[in-house]
Write a protein that binds this DNA or RNA. Structure first.
Lengths: 214, 214
DNA sequence: ACCTGAACACCGTTCAAGT
DNA sequence: ACCTGAACACCGTTCAAGT
């Protein structure tokens, strides 16, 4: 079946569709060609190869992500809101984060949020390298949390499972702690709690004990 | 070349060697067979298939990792020392973390550290679900940090690079912050700083503002 | 400028056949 | 119980040839 004219846009759209519906592993050049009704080699003319096709796909999705607007009155709440916003955006694109991670583009993905964070951290009174540390700490925590979270969702059953381990109460004689660790975590609440604690720690006047401010 | 007797141990050892020397992508069934001087199909008899071969490999490497001993006087330093210890162990096995992540076994990998953390958090005075939150927050932060860090090391050049972006001083009018963000981060220092800030925030009496303790 | 089929060098896995 | 080669159904990519 001959096509009138295949465009790069069509290729990218079809590729995005495959990823959305069947996940990244479903995106093979041959399957994509079948989807488009063209020869496999036509795709190469338009997008180079699989590597750059994925690059383009990731870049496009990252640009789709809206700008992050801080909300709230205090510096802590505003910073936490940026982190939550980023988490929301990424969770809305479940395959993106793994693809971005595999392609080493987490920095790229985080840039919009980084700018917002830099502004907020400055408003909170941090300057210079301490401000940069704070920005990066929140960035690493957020992206890292998302990676672990995604991982956990993909394969929820572990061996030995957390539950098995903690039911035998090795939690320093705290049965409530053992029970809590045996239960699955409420990710959203844990995220907010941990980001808030992190930001609290970062914004302490004079810095955390033992760390010299610049 | 006929072999006297191929064992499961030999297969695992050769597989580990391939991963160590040439990275996980080099571990193909055919290459492994060539390395061992056997037919590809012999491997299947001993380890099932590629999936379970990787499982066994990960499990073995995780068990190799030593137990983590907390060091230091205060709860904060002891908790930070566990996180640092885990980071050190994992960085000594550069391919492990990616493999573990891909296989959804990050929980498994973190179990030894989790027990140590539970003990320390209890000693620091946290109880029940707040203690569980603290354990998990440190766990997520550490593993997440490592994932992002590995990712960054694998592909250090980003587009647009952090440097390019921040050289144009959009950092809320803080040139020192802009410069600091343009420079590459000192990962070890950033890790210690962020973990310490996080633990500080988690251990605050009464919990962080706005969060109700159980 | 754009599309094509054939071909190359890989994969993981199955299966019937050997000893 | 253990090993083998042949075969199947996939990959990404290149290349000469078409229009």
């Amino acid at each position: 079946m001959a096509r009138s004219s295949l465009t790069r846009e069509e290729v990218l759209a079809a590729a995005a569709g495959l990823v959305r519906q069947h996940g990244p592993p479903a995106l093979t050049m041959r399957r994509l060609a079948a989807e488009l009704g063209t020869a496999v080699t036509s795709i190469y003319w338009h997008v180079g190869n699989r590597e750059s096709l994925l690059d383009a796909l990731v870049e496009r999705t990252v640009q789709e992500m809206g700008t992050l607007r801080p909300a709230g009155r205090t510096p802590v709440t505003r910073i936490v809101s940026v982190a939550r916003g980023l988490r929301r955006e990424l969770r809305a694109r479940p395959h993106l984060i793994a693809m971005v991670h595999e392609r080493g583009l987490t920095e790229r993905m985080f840039l919009p949020a980084q700018q917002a964070l830099a502004h907020e951290v400055h408003d909170a009174g941090l300057r210079g390298s301490r401000a940069a540390d704070a920005v990066r700490a929140v960035q690493f925590h957020t992206v890292g949390f998302l990676l672990v979270e995604r991982n956990r969702e993909r394969s929820p059953v572990q061996s030995p499972a957390e539950g098995d381990l903690w039911s035998t109460s090795t939690a320093g004689g705290d049965p409530a702690l053992a029970r809590a660790l045996a239960r699955p975590a409420d990710q959203e609440r844990l995220f907010v709690t941990s980001v808030r604690a992190l930001v609290d720690g970062l914004l302490v006047v004079g810095g955390p004990p033992g760390v010299t401010a610049e």
